[in-house]
Nucleic acid binder design. Structure first.
Lengths: 343, 343
DNA sequence: ACCGCGTTTGTTATCGATAACAAACTTTTT
DNA sequence: AAAAAGTTTGTTATCGATAACAAACGCGGT
């Protein structure tokens, strides 16, 4: 054990193996021309010294840091966690490492993070959503780093997009309610500009109501994200007090939908007989609640996997200027007991 | 705009401001002796060029990378997410950045991550739990990097510990059940060595049962983590079939407890009248379920905050050899409707 | 005006690896 | 056996910043 004196460098390994440090550098990475004999010798020397590569130095020298910067709005959100998981798992077998930051649904915080991340010279950046501060857009464009925006359909994309139409998710749900015979339909959440995705769902929702000639004023905001069970319950209470004859409600997420469901149950209303409730996000809770809650699956994991796919293509030096192969993930409605009246 | 030609370096900024690059280096960090005039001039030049510091180079030169490596078992777990949040938020105003990895409850994967992280020269490492592979312990010890282990009480700590007694959480719950008059008490989950924390809760639970002279064989395993609602429901089904007279059950987490609760409700059993159900982790779902689920709060956020506190102390060059100021977070039982019979 | 001290700025060497090119060594071909 | 071609190894310069030391500057006191 070389004790904590000082960490060994490639030169130390080289000396011990009787070669030059360049040969050590080569020997430690795959697909390089080093004879089996010396490679073994070097590996052995490295092990004996307890050598650990310094990727800071490697990064400086090769100008390839192996970092992918990723921002998500919140750690504590199963959808974004799944997207992240999709990215990380696809990247596991490469030498890429994820630099994670969470914005807390704030574009100002996002800007701060991006600014920090750019100092680390990431090879690509993945952002959730397409809403950014002006300065953030500028920083990114000046940096020349490839970008992927996810979970949204930005009007003016910064680069590639793995998109999802939140508006379409809202529309889907209105049609489902309508098919099931509901007419007095409301929406909970999605009132804040911080959660642009929730806002889009609500927008699509209202638009679909208009197309069907239904009332569009049963809207309850529930403040800044994250919207949780508590806010769902409180909002439902308000909905029932403001519009007691409401017969169907979509919530901005499954968590708030569950809160709304429990509120109805406490109030003695029967779901779906007296009122239908739906959410968004295909959370576990929606599947296991009684009744199970109708929801929209956004395929969060696929969004992550597709994102990673694009990253690998961009980094695997294909033509730099390949046009953005935007991917669109389609929303899928999962009809369940909370909106489907038994025969 | 300097287009994508090449990124400007400190030398470019220095030239433009008519100073040396060393002065630029100083001007861009706080608390350095640079006159107000030149600092402004340099800042202006940097802005005009769109200069962005390269922390890879800075790290190599100063041997301070600003990285804190953190491993957690799963991204999709509100408790670990809270702990992470505690760390990140306390670190926000420093120049420290978190390198996150998740082990998927596997010590082999943990070892792989640690090996990767060490190449990045982190200034400290935070790990969840105290179970590591032999090689992982060795790598860490050889590296000389300060360590904090969390959420566990390792027998042989690698460094500082922000601990939590999972066994005590199990014991607490048994006593609570007993006080409420329950005697036929079982446990769901915690059978796998991958989730050492769940295992510890179960161990403490069984031990407390023994001390009270109660039966200790009502144990249902539920396979490898993460244990979710589905597994909770399935295990409860098995529990009721194997030991139909069971009158109280603790589940390894609130998620499985909720699954168990729904299973009981489907089976027409009344909670807590026919059977009591409790969980662990103080998840939202436990608070909002009907009835609300009794749980144990592990103060996940505090664990993170305390961890960050220790990190800052260790890095703020206090005496290197300060003895490990182990912190112990106490479990707190939250008694709710699922285990407390109405009068 | 001169000395001395504190503050501001500059010089040089270095962090640890890799790119690019060059040299030495093997193997194949004719 | 010599030339051609391929493989393995070495040399030198460099990535972009900072540490450590050195020099220049500014300012008050006498």
């Amino acid at each position: 054990m070389a004790s904590i004196s000082k960490r060994p460098t490639m030169i130390d390994v080289a000396r011990r193996a009787g070669v030059s440090s360049m040969t050590v550098s080569r020997a430690l990475k795959p697909n390089t021309s080093v004879s089996d004999g010396t490679r073994e010798r070097i590996q052995k020397a490295a092990d004996e010294l307890g050598y650990v590569l310094d990727s800071t130095a490697a990064g400086l020298s090769s100008s390839r840091t192996g970092f992918i910067a990723v921002t998500i709005p919140s750690i504590n959100n199963a959808n974004f966690a799944d997207t992240l998981r999709g990215i990380v798992e696809r990247l596991r077998d490469t030498n890429m490492q994820v630099l994670l930051g969470y914005t807390n649904y704030s574009t100002a915080e996002e800007e701060r993070l991006i600014e920090q991340f750019l100092q680390r010279r990431p090879e690509a950046i993945v952002m959730t959503g397409g809403a950014h501060t002006e300065r953030c857009r500028m920083l990114i464009e000046n940096s020349g780093v490839p970008i992927v925006e996810t979970w949204d359909l930005p009007e003016v994309p910064l680069g590639d997009v793995v998109g999802f139409s939140n508006a379409e998710a809202g529309r889907l749900m209105v049609r489902h309610f309508y098919d099931q015979g509901y007419r007095k339909i409301g929406f909970i959440g999605g009132d804040t500009s911080r959660d642009t995705r929730g806002l889009d769902r609500r927008r699509g929702f209202v638009q679909a109501l208009e197309e069907l000639g239904l009332e569009t004023d049963r809207l309850i905001g529930s403040g800044p994200p994250p919207i949780s069970m508590r806010e769902g319950a409180a909002s439902m209470k308000k909905m029932l007090s403001d519009w007691p004859d409401t017969d169907a409600v979509m919530c901005v997420s499954d968590l708030s939908a569950f809160g709304a469901l429990t509120e109805c149950q406490r109030a003695g209303m029967r779901v779906p007989d007296d009122i239908a409730i739906a959410g968004f996000g295909a959370y576990d809770i929606a599947e296991h609640a009684i009744p199970a809650i109708t929801t929209v699956d956004a395929a969060a994991l696929s969004i992550g996997e597709n994102t990673a796919e694009i990253l690998l293509r961009r980094l695997g030096d294909a033509d730099e200027e390949t046009p953005a192969p935007s991917t669109l993930i389609a929303p899928k409605l999962l009809a369940r007991g909370s909106t489907v009246r038994p025969l």
